[in-house]
């Protein structure tokens, strides 16, 4: 009998432990067992995936891109959360700042989250470039807290919002999850307002190398996708992990913009 599938995850919050213990318990009743290993950063996790220490990595989109680049594509995405298919970045200003589009940021200060955050730094820079804003057209205020966790903690984005509220920045780029956690502009319409929203892109996925046997990968994915929002115990884990309702198969086209951004910005494949 095969040993348990070993999944790596990054410990960006105390809730990572109950999340993965819950998923491990769920798999204990299934056709393939799984266990997990926690890492302090995505760099170590991707290294562990490539050297075979773990079978599957619960990766951010940047960790996925870097795995693809380091393995010359000899890896695959197995599954993701439903919210990972429709992730977005929003640009937010103080209410009444008269910013209507990214082009309006010319000559302004934009606060970004950690430089390894796809949603709050890498993609926002790409979006501004696509809007015709060069390096000298915008003053970037980078808030590099929690480097290594790819923005998972949200801390750098919240610090960026504080900079905006303190009038140290004119705009801020946030992941849609952080914007919604604050209450978007529904709870404080007189303080902050969203003025631009990106196209949807993909965020996290379960990444495996091509060496993972197909039957094992299929058993893992089939059982993962069978997790039910209608089961109270399973739902608790899914809520904690931030799912809207279900695990889904990956949509790889949703990573194209990040591959482009990584190449354009010269972000190394390994760090």
């Amino acid at each position: 009998m095969r040993q348990a599938v070993l999944v790596g995850a990054v410990a960006y919050t105390t809730n990572v432990v109950p999340i993965w213990e819950g998923i491990r318990d769920y798999f204990a009743d299934g056709p393939v067992e799984m266990d997990f290993v926690l890492f302090s950063n995505y760099g170590r996790q991707v290294d562990a995936l490539i050297d075979g220490t773990i079978d599957i990595a619960w990766n951010t989109n940047l960790a996925w891109v870097r795995t693809v680049l380091q393995t010359d594509g000899r890896c695959r995405a197995l599954a993701m959360r439903d919210i990972d298919r429709t992730f977005q970045t929003v640009f937010v200003s103080r209410a009444g700042a008269s910013l209507g589009d990214l082009a309006d940021l010319r000559g302004r200060r934009v606060a970004l989250g950690s430089r390894d955050s796809a949603q709050a730094a890498i993609l926002p820079v790409k979006y501004m470039r696509d809007a015709g804003l060069g390096t000298d057209d915008v003053e970037l205020i980078r808030i590099d807290t929690d480097l290594g966790k790819h923005g998972d903690t949200g801390r750098s984005e919240l610090d960026a919002v504080r900079a905006l509220l303190d009038e140290e920045a004119d705009a801020v780029a946030l992941g849609i999850n952080t914007w919604e956690a604050i209450g978007s502009d529904e709870l404080m319409p007189d303080a902050l307002t969203e003025f631009w929203r990106s196209p949807e892109y993909c965020h996290c996925n379960f990444t495996a190398l091509d060496s993972l046997p197909d039957d094992v990968g299929k058993l893992f994915v089939d059982h993962l996708l069978a997790m039910s929002w209608d089961d109270p115990k399973q739902r608790t884990v899914m809520e904690l992990e931030g799912l809207r309702r279900e695990w889904v198969l990956p949509e790889l086209d949703g990573y194209a913009s990040l591959f482009t951004a990584v190449e354009e910005q010269g972000i190394p494949a390994r760090w």
Partner: peptide, 13 residues
């Protein structure tokens, strides 16, 4: 208003 917004940021954090 800004005070309330700061509070919301603190709550999230």
């Amino acid at each position: 208003m800004v005070g309330d917004a700061r509070t919301l940021v603190d709550l999230v954090a």
